[in-house]
């Protein structure tokens, strides 16, 4: 699969290239995004891709246990989380978010290597807003984020 990003950053590097094509969705580029993944390299890839899409207001956490208090006190607008992490997993974090009165409306995108149908269904039932399987491309990430906010705003 030569078009997959995997561990190298492909596609657009700069914002002008990424946003200059296709239908534009009007997204708040200042929204505060929390990136949760136990691998620092993957957090860095996602952070870079988000920056290329124009989102620079990001924070990072390495698992659900550290992410949840950040979410509860940090007025985040969007959560991007991995599934398989030590401590608290992404699916547990998603359930905790949906169970929290103040956080339950938070849009959540899962970016994970977990690809079993049962798991995708489980995430959907737990209330995930989007699901991206690794390895992924910059384009897929962009599409899913746009789709999520099209629904949230629409």
């Amino acid at each position: 699969m030569p078009s997959q990003a995997g561990f190298t950053i492909r596609g657009c590097i700069q914002a002008a290239e990424c946003t200059g094509e296709g239908t534009e969705v009007d997204l708040d580029k200042n929204m505060k995004i929390l990136i949760v993944d136990d691998f620092s390299t993957m957090r860095r890839i996602i952070k870079n891709l988000l920056r290329d899409l124009g989102f620079t207001n990001t924070a990072e956490a390495d698992d659900g246990t550290t992410a949840l208090p950040m979410l509860q006190s940090g007025s985040f607008d969007f959560l991007v989380t991995d599934w398989n992490m030590p401590g608290m997993t992404g699916i547990e974090l998603l359930r905790a978010v949906r169970a929290d009165e103040r956080l339950k409306q938070l849009p959540v995108l899962m970016v994970t290597a977990e690809a079993k149908r049962d798991q995708i269904i489980e995430a959907a039932q737990a209330g995930v807003n989007g699901y991206v399987v690794k390895p992924f491309t910059a384009q897929v990430l962009k599409e899913k984020i746009e789709k999520i906010f099209e629904r949230v705003n629409g």
Binding site: N84, I91, A113, A115, K116, E122
Partner: peptide
């Protein structure tokens, strides 16, 4: 337990 995650397929 699939909730724990299995990693890449």
């Amino acid at each position: 337990n699939p909730s724990q995650g299995e990693g890449p397929q």
